[in-house]
Design a protein around this nucleic acid. Structure first.
Lengths: 218, 218, 218, 218
DNA sequence: GATGAATGAGGATTCATTCAT
DNA sequence: CATGAATGAATCCTCATTCAT
């Protein structure tokens, strides 16, 4: 009455892997729609078509579940970006390729990823750990690009100091621009990438070449 | 502890204005520390040294209270920035002055403001209304600067299109840099302002002058 | 600055009697509109244009206040009815006069009295005391009429027993009819009185005369 | 008290249906005892031997719960009355049977039903919806009886007009008499039914036969 | 493996009531 | 006399989480 019950309807005895994906998909949807706190495990289990105990068994607590969502989505994004960048390109081309990939990804996930991103960065607790780490790695990558570019062109020690801050700025600029995109969906991602590229890369290039802006007095 | 308590008057009757300030101060502290959802009205009332009914009587619901916090803090910030910018300066100087003021303000409020900012932007609901509006105004101001600068130098129609996106990027870059600052508090705010100035302003200047970056192929 | 302040606006130093009437008027309005529990002392004080401490000083607790409302309104009603009945009339005419007065009163107070009545009879607690007493007196009066009428006509001992129950029924019928009136306001009160008179008085008359209805079997 | 507690299974898992009945039973008890507003969900859950979340999960909000109580009890009553009336009896016998059933039901539920009835009719809000509907149907049924009886005996057009008002009066008289019963429990329900029958039916019969009461002058 | 049943704990909100001025 | 200021005490409701089946 349990093992021999072959009617393939009643209780779908799916492999764990499939169940986990179902749950994560539902969780991403619900978290995106309502935010971390407002989302309820009940709704997630409903959307997933899985009972709550299963969620706890497979993914752990709500916090764990959220972290798993972030991890999965962020990983997808990093992979998308990494896949778009050719390792043997020049630094500027690499940055360009990365930006293109970034905006492509965000454009395709408009409703899910950016909301998750917001949620994760805003929660004070341990939630953002995954994302902070991911963001840190992104910043480091950009920083490496900047440094490589600068070094190659002979940037002086002094000026190098701020590259990491600038990398952070660049990443933030990208995020902010993605945000701006929500209200201007007609602009193609490629254009955004171009704008940002010009804005920051040209400025950085000037900097490397010694063209420094300084306030007159102050 | 009840009858012998000789401290003059168990309950100080303070005017509404004072109490409201107390409450807002406490609310900013608590919201910053725990985030909107996790913060409890109980804790806020404790920190404020006021009973909960007073909060509801004076500031309304939790949501109202949060909005009031955001409004107050954001207004303070905008005023600080506006106060730092001289209307008759050149665009680049105005931007510089604004950045200086921004980083000064953030530096002074390190623990409170930026967290509130995060909270507000992450909550999907009506919370962020105040802040979104404020941010919109900030972006508009920067945009005006960019446009003014570009026009003066004869930027072509085509290129002008993206100024608002770039303004958004710049604001985001600033926010992100402020975030980076948390982990590098030894860097003076002035330096941050300089970096950001160089990063974006120089790039923007190049753009205006027709030095456009374009991908080789793609 | 207190006694000599002759500007007749600021603090109206009205005699207690007037204040009490103001408060009771407001209370009746608010209780009628929202019901006892849902009504708030805040709203009553607002409507009365008097501060809450005054209410407590003059009328006591919320419960006391409600009782005072009931008492006042019920007394008005009893007086209206008593005023409409001529002591030297025949029983049937007295009942008729009473019904006329009752429906007149209810018709004039449509929005206030009946709601209060409902509230009072429904609250389990000590609220209804006033009203129950008043209602009891009304029933007694009707009962006296019935008894007088019956005795005069030589009703046998046995049949007399139920007069008090019938009086209660009559009062209830009147209340219920008044209720029905809300949905049929076009019917004049006089007509209602006639209907009720015919319904119960004629039946009672038959009873007195020995025309008793009994179930065939059962 | 924790580990050694050997009673088999601390929490009995009962099917939803059973729990719902338990909850409704408790709710009827508590609402009857304290009235809608004064009753607390805490007490209901205590009495039901169920935790509050179950109540909300199964029956919804306090308002919903109250409505469910009214609905259940009123339905029971209507069924009791309907079950007591024989469709092929004469109108007077049907009324008689209905009254008998009504007083039987009320007599058996003395502590619960009538109080609920009072509560429901007194609350202004959407509570009474169920009950108002039920009462309306009762009045319609009685009205139908009256009309049928009158038509059969050739009542004139004019007099027929007030049947619905009289039906309302009759229902109110019944309720009021049931109320009076609380203070005179020694009287058997059958007697009450007889009294009421005589009071209203005989009067109605006279009316039909043209014996109309009219005030002498006025 | 899978789930309906069950709850402890806590959170927002309201309100009658009373001081201190 | 008159009131704004202040609060203790409840109340409704929700939700993450876990058993027993």
């Amino acid at each position: 009455m349990d093992a021999i019950d072959a009617r393939q309807g009643r209780v779908k005895r799916l492999p764990r892997e499939v169940r986990e994906r179902q749950i994560l998909d539902a969780a991403v949807r619900v978290f995106s729609a309502h935010g971390y706190h407002t989302a309820s495990m009940d709704e997630i289990s409903d959307v997933a078509g899985v009972s709550k105990p299963m969620i706890y068994a497979y993914l752990g607590s709500k916090e764990d579940l959220f972290a798993a969502c972030i991890r999965r989505e962020a990983t997808l994004m990093m992979e998308a970006i990494a896949g778009g960048v050719q390792g043997d390109s020049a630094p500027d081309m690499q940055l360009w390729q990365g930006l293109r990939a970034f905006f492509s990804f965000v454009g395709a996930q408009r409703d899910s990823w950016r909301v998750l991103h917001r949620q994760a960065t805003s929660q004070g607790g341990p939630f953002s750990d995954e994302l902070v780490a991911m963001r840190g790695r992104a910043i480091e990558l950009v920083d490496a690009l900047l440094v490589r570019s600068a070094t190659k062109q002979g940037m002086d020690e002094q000026a190098t100091k701020g590259t990491s801050a600038m990398a952070a700025a660049l990443v933030g600029a990208g995020e902010s621009m993605a945000d701006w995109w929500v209200d201007h969906p007609e602009v193609p991602g490629r254009t955004l990438a171009t704008w940002l590229m010009n804005l920051v890369w040209m400025g950085f290039g000037d900097l490397v070449e010694g063209k420094v802006w300084t306030p007159n007095e102050d």
